[in-house]
């Protein structure tokens, strides 16, 4: 049920966000994610990996339809699975440390990065996400699919404005 207030908020913020999306698509080559640490993929050992939106989109596109505790109504997220990303980097064990633009950091065990698990979402409801709209990357779990994704730990791991990943053993 949408209250008058939330309706107001939605109208207030949706217009500038759309403008920003266009900005983001124009600066597609901009690096939005860097990955460092225990990378085991041949030829990339120990290097710092940098990804722009098209790089990530090339890795794969997985869609999750779910509600979240931070949004109103059913949302459609599109992104690359964390598992896919880690697989390209040859990471099979350890912990990844995800760091946001506001320096918020959270650890996600590699073991949790499974198929059907978290994705690095770059589109919400068909639109790329601006920073004001928790973009450009947002770690999303399929919350509606299982109660195991509706825990405080999972919510804390649902990091938005993701910028960096450090992989440790």
């Amino acid at each position: 049920m949408m209250t008058k207030f939330t309706l107001f908020c939605f109208l207030a913020f949706s217009l500038p966000a759309a403008i920003l999306a266009d900005v983001a698509s124009n600066t597609k080559s901009e690096i939005i994610l860097t990955v460092t640490g225990e990378i085991a993929a041949p030829g990339a050992e120990g290097r710092k990996m940098a990804y722009d939106l098209s790089d990530l989109a090339e890795l794969g596109s997985t869609t999750i339809k779910t509600t979240t505790i931070w949004t109103e109504g059913l949302q459609t997220f599109e992104g690359v699975e964390l598992a896919t990303l880690l697989k390209t980097l040859g990471v099979t064990e350890g912990v990844i440390k995800a760091i946001a633009l506001n320096d918020y950091a959270v650890e996600i065990p590699v073991a949790d990065a499974v198929s059907g698990g978290p994705i690095l979402a770059y589109k919400r409801n068909g639109q790329f996400m601006s920073v004001r709209d928790k973009g450009p990357l947002w770690v999303i779990f399929p919350y509606d699919s299982s109660a195991q994704f509706r825990t405080e730990v999972t919510y804390s791991q649902s990091i938005w404005q993701l910028a960096k990943i450090e992989i440790t053993h």
């Binding site: 931070w70 633009l101 709209d133 928790k134 938005w160």
Partner: peptide, 12 residues
């Protein structure tokens, strides 16, 4: 942007 995003979260 970050603050904007935060306030938006609180309001939505």
């Amino acid at each position: 942007d970050i603050f904007y995003s935060r306030i938006k979260t609180l309001s939505q």
